[in-house]
Structure formats: C-alpha cells, structure tokens
C-alpha cells in the first residue's frame, strides 16, 4: 500500500501555497492562479519536461527545474517570473519559431495556436536566430486528418495521447536532434497506418497547426479538448 501523500507548504513568487507531495509545482501554481507558461504539458498526459517553458528558479538549487515534473518540498522557495526566466522563455520560443516553417498568417490554426499565444504572452516580437527553413513534407494521406511537419514543435503530445489514452501507440518520434520527426507506425503514411484508430485525439491535443482536420481553411481549425480531463479522470480512478 502506498503511504498517504503528505501536504507541503512552500512559496511561489512570494506567496505561501500548499500542495500535496504527489502534485507538481505547476499544478499548485495553477490552483493559486499563478500563470507559468507551458507548451508540452497538457492536463491528463504524463509530463516529460521537454519544452522547458515552465522552468522555474528554486532558491538554493543550482539549476532551473521544469515545474511540470517538480514536486513540492516543504519550505521551498519558487520563483516563476524573473527577468532571466523571461529571457530564456523568449529564446526558447525563438528556437521553436526558427526551427520549422511557422507561417502563422496562412496557417489553419492561426488564432488558435498555443505557440502563437505564447509568443504574444512572453513578448517575443521577433526571432533573432536565423530561420532554418527545412524542407518538410505534409502528410495528407489520412482520410480525415493532415500532418504538417512544418508546424510541428515536437512536444510529443500526440505520441503521449495516442499511447497513454487511446492505447494505440501509432505515433512516435523518429530520428534524433534537429532531424527528429513524429511518425505514424514505422514511418508509414498516416493513411496507411495499421494501428491508427482514427480517433483524432492527437489532432485535438496538438498545440499548433501540425495535426489538423481536413476541410479547414486559414484560422478555421480550433481544437476541442473537452474529452481529455474526463478520460484522464477515469484513468486515474481506475488506478
């Protein structure tokens, strides 16, 4: 039997907050209306600490830590907003915008995109690093969905929702480093995937216009995620 999680009192941005030790700093921050930017995090999916947007400072700790996977500790002092963190968050967004071809103006997800929203939120008005302009494919082989790798930020939400919630594990990441690519099955066209159930969860959790439904024009694709907290709650309940 697992012991009952204890309750911890700590501080975020000068405010006293209370969290259970099995929560994360991010969860506790949100409960207290303290906004920490996130990108790869999505309620209901396992956190992987990959996007580094939610990095926070903890007094006395040498390194910045991702709040999405950091557990509360008694008396810890967390800083979620600082000049330094703001600079890092901006640069990380610049990295993402420069990595692939994010042409917001003609994107189906224009106006409904978490990457776009974050740039506005953290005041990232331009990208100082050179754009990389990779030549990337658009996979429209699926009957209902499109995968546009030009817009993908490799947050792996699709990989996680497909594996953890739908249980199909159609999506995974191939290649490494800057050559990484989300793939269906063993890099087969999406439409030919044997494992894809066509549930569309990957599309709905995708933060950008990388995975979208067909039949949408510019700015028409907004995502519906209502199903996720329900499924996640049910899954938690089963445990």
């Amino acid at each position: 039997m697992t012991p009952t999680p204890r309750v911890k009192t700590f501080r975020i941005d000068g405010r006293d907050v209370v969290g259970r030790e099995d929560q994360t700093v991010l969860e506790v921050a949100r409960e207290n209306d303290i906004r920490i930017p996130t990108l790869c995090h999505l309620d209901g999916l396992t956190d992987i600490g990959a996007c580094r947007m939610c990095l926070v400072e903890v007094q006395g700790w040498g390194r910045l830590v991702p709040s999405c996977v950091t557990k509360p500790e008694e008396g810890m002092v967390v800083v979620s907003q600082s000049e330094r963190l703001a600079r890092y968050r901006r640069t990380i967004l610049e990295f993402l915008f420069s990595e692939r071809n994010h042409v917001c103006a003609v994107c189906v997800s224009n106006g409904h995109c978490e990457l776009q929203d974050l740039a506005e939120e953290v005041g990232m008005t331009h990208v100082r690093v050179p754009y990389r302009y990779p030549g990337l494919a658009v996979d429209a082989s699926h009957g209902r969905f499109v995968a546009d790798h030009n817009r993908c930020i490799l947050c792996a939400r699709c990989v996680r929702v497909c594996g953890e919630v739908e249980g199909a594990h159609t999506w995974d990441v191939s290649g490494r480093g800057i050559q990484s690519l989300v793939i269906t099955d063993l890099a087969a066209p999406w439409g030919e995937s044997d494992t894809c159930t066509g549930c569309g969860k990957c599309v709905q959790v995708c933060p950008t216009g990388a995975l979208t439904e067909k039949g949408h024009s510019v700015a028409e694709m907004s995502k519906r995620r209502q199903f996720l907290p329900y499924l996640a709650t049910m899954r938690e309940g089963r445990r």
Partner: peptide, 19 residues
C-alpha cells in the same frame, strides 16, 4: 520599424525558401 510579419519573420514570401 519592421512593420508586419513579412518584415519581421519574412512570412509568406519566405514560403519559397525551402526550394
């Protein structure tokens, strides 16, 4: 002042860049 996405990001005109 870079005004607008084309000046700031090169935007739509840059869609030819991968080619």
């Amino acid at each position: 002042v870079s005004l607008g996405d084309c000046a700031v990001t090169s935007n739509v005109p840059a869609m030819r860049n991968p080619f």
